[in-house]
Design a protein around this nucleic acid. Structure first.
Lengths: 167, 167
DNA sequence: TACAGTTACGTCCAACGTAACAATA
DNA sequence: TATTGTTACGTTGGACGTAACTGTA
């Protein structure tokens, strides 16, 4: 595997410049001085051995190769951005509280075993257990007062359509 | 869009360390000194606010979060790697020669118009035109002596199965 | 003691901002 | 002349390697 001749910052500068078609405004948005954007993109072009922008007009535009590369840069930056969001969720889960709704009938007989084994695996998690009837649970779940619940009904409302499986 | 707190080099170091489960050997493979790998990964962990490696054992291993992040890092690095390969192809095309096989019958009547408009759009490309019979063209194509051809036959050989469309 | 990882430190490159310059409408 | 991009330059943060230190089989 050859070493990558590209820097993430260069990709970000290029992405912004390509979107705004204007180095000055891109620099403002990126909170850096304008020459840095010029230089970063020039270095990127040199590293890739290809011209990304057409500078012949007043309004700069992407070359065809620039367009190709932009799509890839978008994808890579998006992937990294998502990874960070994903880890943020993870962190929140690690120190957070899980609010579970559960009907008394199930809760009394089935839940204790699950609960104690879960607590062993995730000692940093607090679990708040709401033992209530299905209708009350449904209301709390829709109001985001519960994270999830064990219960069952015929017609789920639209706001609760995506099922989540946690193992 | 918030600024990314991550560097590509950090991702590369992390990726190699995760694969080899050994910072010393990772450093060798990456052609950098071993402390740099330690520091880079620590900075990455700090930037992400999460622990990527379990260092409690002799042989280090990924934490669950580390595994999650590795998949994303792999994806991002792969995307950028692919982008560079794609541009390399593009560059080769830009300064290269396209070798086209075409049967005389088609070539004489249909090709001149296409050829001249293509030359206008890509003046840097040389086109070598081989006007021959289908069997001769097929042999040259399979031997990589032609880039593509216009012709038609019943049973294409296995080495020519992937069709390419260039517009 | 051998091996893997961390900490400390001095060096150097490259990213930064400021400022001067060039080009185009 | 106003606007946008480029070139020049001095400063500095951070990535590097060397070396000393820590911890564990």
């Amino acid at each position: 595997m050859k070493k990558l001749p590209v820097e993430l910052r260069q990709l970000e500068y290029f992405q912004m410049a390509a979107r705004l078609r204007n180095l000055t405004r891109a620099a403002e948005r990126l909170h850096v001085s304008q020459p840095n954007v010029t230089v970063a993109i020039k270095k990127l072009e040199h590293a890739l051995g290809i011209q990304l922008f057409d500078r012949s007009q007043k309004q700069l535009s992407l070359t065809p190769e620039g367009n190709v590369f932009l799509a890839r840069a978008d994808s890579a930056l998006h992937t990294i951005h998502d990874a960070i969001l994903e880890l943020d969720d993870y962190k929140q889960l690690q120190k957070g509280t899980i609010r579970i709704g559960i009907p008394p009938m199930i809760g009394a007989y089935l839940f204790p075993r699950i609960f104690s084994s879960f607590q062993q695996q995730h000692p940093q998690l607090s679990i708040y257990l709401y033992e209530e009837g299905s209708m009350a649970i449904r209301e709390k779940l829709e109001g985001d007062d519960l994270d999830f619940s064990f219960c069952r009904w015929q017609h789920a409302s639209l706001s609760l359509e995506s099922p989540t499986i946690i193992r």
